[in-house]
Design a protein around this nucleic acid. Structure first.
Lengths: 146, 146
DNA sequence: GAGAATACGGAAAAAATTATCCGTATCCGA
DNA sequence: TCGGATACGGATAATTTTTTCCGTATTCTC
């Protein structure tokens, strides 16, 4: 594993949760494994936009953190399956609530971002913005304004 | 803001939530602001391990994502306050559940990590590990074992 | 026997995030 | 008038994460 240089401080709950599910695909992996998608190749097919390598790495980390368990069947061709540990299962409600919130506010979020886009790329007239943003944003402008 | 090169896909709830609170200190900031720590300097004092710069950046992003609102009082010396937006408040229960889970399992997690440490740095005898890990971990070993 | 599937790892490049250090400006108090 | 408080931004370095591309090995099918 990559050797970290900046020590981490796990004195608060969020830090721990983030350490565990912070990776780009980890929450997907947890979700999938909890829903019986167990084998590496299946997981890769389920998340095609992720490279095989990262999924591997993140699965290792989830295993390292005690969230999932890797079971190897000594067969040929190789067979591996992942299972949630009890510790991992304990976090499913949290993951679910995160997913639920995100899904519920997906539209809100998208529309918000769309509006930003508009006001950011329109070089012609971003009137409302020009009205207050400079005053709000710039230090210099504020100074002048006062 | 840093211009991203890999487009993001917000088709799932987790991705949205992560986009919003993924930053290193964002959840702290949300927590603090929701608990009436409003002014930039206060926030910085509350999170001394974070550099001023990152907090600024992450506050900008939270504002950009519609989670908090920045209110400028045109005074001298400068005064700024952050407030949760309704959208931001809607995510407080989720943040709370994340924090709660993390706090609840903090000890579990720490002990787990401690054990890993032991088995990783003991060069003398990590007997249990040697018994099964190599078989589990290495491809080659498995091949031989079969 | 070539090519698919299974599973995995190393090395290096690319991308993203965070840290560090510099600067701006005003005001207040010693 | 100097140091500290307020608040902020640019540029660059360091760190971390993710991607890409290479390789290993076995078995089964065509």
């Amino acid at each position: 594993m990559y050797e970290k240089k900046i020590p981490k401080d796990f004195s608060c709950g969020m830090a721990i949760l983030m350490e565990i599910i912070g990776g780009k695909w980890k929450s997907y992996l947890i979700y999938l494994i909890a829903n019986n998608v167990r084998r590496p190749a299946e997981l890769q097919r389920a998340i095609p936009s992720a490279s095989r390598r990262v999924l591997d790495l993140q699965l290792r980390e989830l295993e390292f953190h005690g969230i999932i368990k890797r079971v190897i069947y000594p067969e040929m061709p190789p067979k591996v399956e992942y299972f949630m540990t009890p510790f991992g299962e304990s976090m499913l409600p949290v993951v679910a609530s995160m997913e639920t919130w995100g899904a519920e506010y997906m539209e809100t979020f998208r529309q918000l971002m769309e509006n930003k886009q508009k006001t950011m790329h329109t070089d012609g007239e971003c009137v409302e913005i020009k009205k207050d943003k400079p005053v709000i944003r710039g230090r210099r402008t504020l100074a002048k304004a006062v």
